[in-house]
Write a protein that binds this DNA or RNA. Structure first.
Lengths: 160, 160
DNA sequence: CGGAGACTGTTATAGACCATTACAATCTCC
DNA sequence: GGAGATTGTAATGGTCTATAACAGTCTCCG
């Protein structure tokens, strides 16, 4: 049995070019396809904002969530990201190796580690959040303010 | 003690769960994050529509584009999908191995192959398009018809 | 006409990411 | 106190993708 591929990450840095004169058939009527194209476009914005730091969207999400929920454990983090525990651990290792996150033993649960941003991590994440949010808005500037709000609303409604 | 080899377990694709009581910080204001969540949701619809055939979104896109543009070559296909030529070739190999697509020499360009759906491919792709479009609409039924159209418009505007 | 440079398909290689499986330690709950 | 669930961890393998190199072909200008 084939394993379904992971949908959580854009697979490529290359924009999905709109090749002129080509027939896209049914694709133009599928929300899924338009979503993917838009997501790739926004991924490029994200990448511009985090150039050279090696922070991918899942890593950024993880850092923000850890910062907003100090002491969160790796299993919950995996659930937030939609990945397996082993993947969440690899993430935590990666952060720890850079001194951005540290593991502290949970007082009330001897199995779990609590994840915390280090002071250095705090600083870095704060700056990254500013840059990412700015780029996100800049790339979305083709939309009016009302359109942007409406798009966010529709997306969240769709995502459930 | 070694355990006996375990049978396959159908894997449930993990949506990006909204963990209750968790602070998502800046993420809720980012188009990029909402796009990703919505895309995962629609990916689940896609996967439901193509269960067991092994057709991923890029593969589906490729099949539709080949069907709508017979004789397209692999480089252009790669550009449409946003992947490198070598990846487009792996795709074509995969299709050809299943007898869905065949390569024919271009008459006017000795370097290129033209990709064509076989009769069997035609049949399969037609059925797949129906199922995918139906699931896409079904999953998007939380939106009104006007909302769906508006969402498509905004996504295409954003994707450029 | 001829050759430089661009393009096509192809192969090999390497890397990123993720799931699965198994296991030990720990917690929960009856 | 014990069965079963949960947590972190490690090992392994699969899928997708890019990169680089190569040969054959095309384009186009000198």
């Amino acid at each position: 049995m084939k394993r379904p591929p992971s949908p959580h990450r854009p697979r490529t840095l290359a924009p999905i070019a709109r090749v002129p004169g080509l027939d896209y058939g049914v694709l133009d009527e599928l929300l899924g396809y338009s979503l993917r194209r838009a997501q790739v476009a926004m991924f490029l914005a994200f990448h511009a904002a985090t150039r050279g730091v090696g922070v991918t969207p899942p890593r950024f999400t993880a850092l923000v969530v850890i910062g907003a929920n100090p002491g969160i454990n790796q299993s919950v983090l995996g659930r937030v990201l939609g990945i397996a525990r082993s993947g969440a651990m690899a993430l935590a290792d990666w952060f720890e190796a850079r001194g951005w996150v540290e593991r502290r033993r949970h007082l009330d649960d001897g199995r779990a580690w609590g994840l915390h941003l280090t002071p250095r991590g705090e600083t870095l994440v704060a700056a990254m959040k500013r840059r990412v949010a700015a780029e996100d808005r800049r790339r979305a500037a083709v939309l009016g303010a009302g359109e942007r709000r409406e798009l966010l609303r529709l997306l969240n409604k769709l995502a459930g």
